[in-house]
Design a protein around this nucleic acid. Structure first.
Lengths: 218, 218
DNA sequence: TTTTAATTTTAGACAAATCTAAAAATAATT
DNA sequence: AATTATTTTTAGATTTGTCTAAAATTAAAA
């Protein structure tokens, strides 16, 4: 049985492992968990003891099969609770993260599987992130960043990379939501902004925005 | 902001205060929280510091107005989550307690009020216990123990005093649920068992059972 | 009412999760 | 390659919540 702290560290290590082939550094973990490197070193010992990660002194951390499976179950809970908050309790997509961060630690397999069924086995959370199923399988979805699209093609918005309130509220103001469709008109070389035709209006999105928006060709 | 442990102690003190006019003893709290008296003494200092209880050395604990209000908000959360688990996720009434014990500590007023609305502002949890509203007001309901009923009168089952799985499953086996109606036929002087006419059958309930069943004359 | 019993508190210890400051190891730079 | 800088670990401390054992207080009984 893992503590809340152990679960939080494991989740961070899992996410860092997604885009990192070498060992995850103590500092990288400290930065994501908002703690000091020395605290991370302590926690590494505990997670290693429980066979969730491997680690050699000064060498960085690797997540194990067991660690990945465990992390995916935590992420499953987090994302299902997010769907509950948005679909059933009518939270906005920028309000769900902190509460889900607490709810993800509730320990009951029966609860989470009943919740999954109640929500109709959703494939994605409100930010377009995939929800692992009860076995830990993650539905794969074709997607690319708006910065990497081709002009004059139609795309659908399918996810966000940045899930901060600030970014999500910005999208709300632009009336962009998951499922929105548009045509890419131009990639500006100078500042890497992207101009799209969306709801009969031309809309220019900065590089920062375009680089945090996942889309899919339709 | 209270810790989980502080909330658990406060809830126990609140419940003990309901049937106790004098100060709550350290031992009584220790027994309910499944800890040792010395641990309770430590926690008393913390709750006193936060003005949730009053306490003089060796004299027992009294809950304050603030303590009662705070406790009722925790109980509100516990009971609303129980309703969610039974009504929406189809848990049985004997399966909800432990999960609700975890869920009651989630800190979000918006969440709990949205949940309340989603559930249709229920007045009672699955065991017939009243749910405090957002202001902390508790709907009063007429009720008495089956042991204190009059013969030849009709009653409805409206709550249980004991919420243990064992007792609830016993009631399930007898087909007794909240809302069940019956006529009291006899109070046995010898063993204080109660015989009722329920669904055209005579059913004798032991003193232990009768003393844990809340009913209301209809 | 004095002695015995029970309760409550204090004192000191421990595990979990964190920190700061210093030491050790690795990486980067002349 | 030697020096400097960065990263990581260790050592020791702190807070929270718990414990055991002993001391202090109150309650009960002879």
């Amino acid at each position: 049985m893992l503590t809340h702290a152990e679960e939080n560290y494991l989740k961070v290590i899992y996410h860092l492992s997604q885009t990192e082939d070498e060992g995850i550094s103590t500092n990288a973990i400290a930065q994501k968990t908002d703690t000091k490197a020395s605290s991370v070193t302590d926690m590494i010992k505990k997670l290693k003891e429980k066979n969730l990660i491997t680690h050699e002194k000064y060498q960085g951390v690797f997540i194990t099969k067991l660690g990945m499976q465990t992390a995916k179950m935590i992420i499953r809970k987090h994302r299902l609770w997010e769907v509950f908050l948005v679909d059933k309790l009518h939270f906005n997509w920028d309000e769900v993260h902190d509460v889900a961060e607490e709810l993800e630690h509730i320990k009951s397999e029966k609860l989470i599987n009943a919740l999954d069924a109640f929500l109709g086995y959703p494939k994605e959370d409100p930010h377009g992130d995939p929800i692992p199923n009860a076995k830990g399988e993650i539905p794969y979805r074709e997607k690319e960043l708006l910065t990497e699209t081709k002009i004059n093609h139609k795309y659908m918005c399918v996810g966000v990379k940045d899930t901060s309130s600030a970014f999500l509220q910005y999208l709300d103001r632009q009336k962009i939501a998951l499922g929105s469709t548009f045509t890419v008109l131009k990639h500006e070389n100078f500042d890497h902004s992207v101009t799209i035709l969306f709801q009969d209006n031309e809309l220019t999105l900065s590089k920062v925005v375009a680089h945090n928006l996942f889309v899919k060709k339709i």
